[in-house]
Nucleic acid binder design. Sequence first.
DNA 1: TTATAAATTGATAATCATTATCATATGCGC
DNA 2: GCGCATATGATAATGATTATCAATTTATAA
Lengths: 148, 148
Amino acid sequence: MRIVLGLHAKVEESLRSQGVRYTTNRRALIEALDNTPGPLTVDELYRVTEPRIPYSSIYRDVRVLTDTQVLTLHHSADRSNRFELAEWLSGHHHHLVCEACMAISDISLHPDSELRLSRLAESAAANTGYRVTGHTLEIEGLCPECDS
Amino acid sequence: MRIVLGLHAKVEESLRSQGVRYTTNRRALIEALDNTPGPLTVDELYRVTEPRIPYSSIYRDVRVLTDTQVLTLHHSADRSNRFELAEWLSGHHHHLVCEACMAISDISLHPDSELRLSRLAESAAANTGYRVTGHTLEIEGLCPECDS
DNA sequence: TTATAAATTGATAATCATTATCATATGCGC
DNA sequence: GCGCATATGATAATGATTATCAATTTATAA
């Protein structure tokens, strides 16, 4: 079971070192993202936090937390942006997306697979002049509920 | 060199079979997407087509072409949607994204790599209950111009 | 060849997601 | 305790997209 106190302490220290406060609202947003598998939209963050955080505060806070590299923006299949904990907090992972209900969940690869994926990405870009810094794999399919 | 007439003939037949016309505007949009490596936003489509196609027509046409599976919506790192030819027209491929200038280009893997990626995606999802239908790999890095 | 119906078009209004602004509140450091 | 910087919540503004509508175009049937 995740040591949640460790997570908040890490976030607070990171923010403090960048002159940014770890306020009550921000802590609640981090908590919500930690408690949910998969990235969340601003509207989902609004609906899962109690007491309610105003939209203007959520939009500003996710921007602040993204700029400070606590969160990562995940570009989603709909018009909304989605946010998730940065990988230094939640670990490297990929996404599993249901094509029917659009549910998104995190998925981690076995370390051997992850290594093979990294090498595959490097070799794929070898002739392009790009210096590879990372990769994102999105696996599409039908979740158990939609695969009837 | 791509036999472009073949492309338009394929698109026209596919649309006709779905009761949709292959109009001059739509042909121009397909042409623009075929001539550009990487997916395009509506604004980019507006700027590369001559004569100009009004925004309302572009928005409606990319919607029609996406619904008819001629185009695919690519969720992008900015707020704009991006569109590209569906894989049955342009082949299975992945994307290379520059983290500095946000340029996106198509990239194909060696068939061996593609097979290994498919198997990796299948095995990664093996314990999730998902029925895997596809995958998308996005490789991030710095393009030659930005990697100075 | 003509008429009709359906699809398409372009301009513009409306909507939605996000950002900007502003007055006020809060909290930290001295 | 004070001052200053940061944060806040409400609301206005912006940008991307969708909806609406009158007019046009095109395909089909007679």
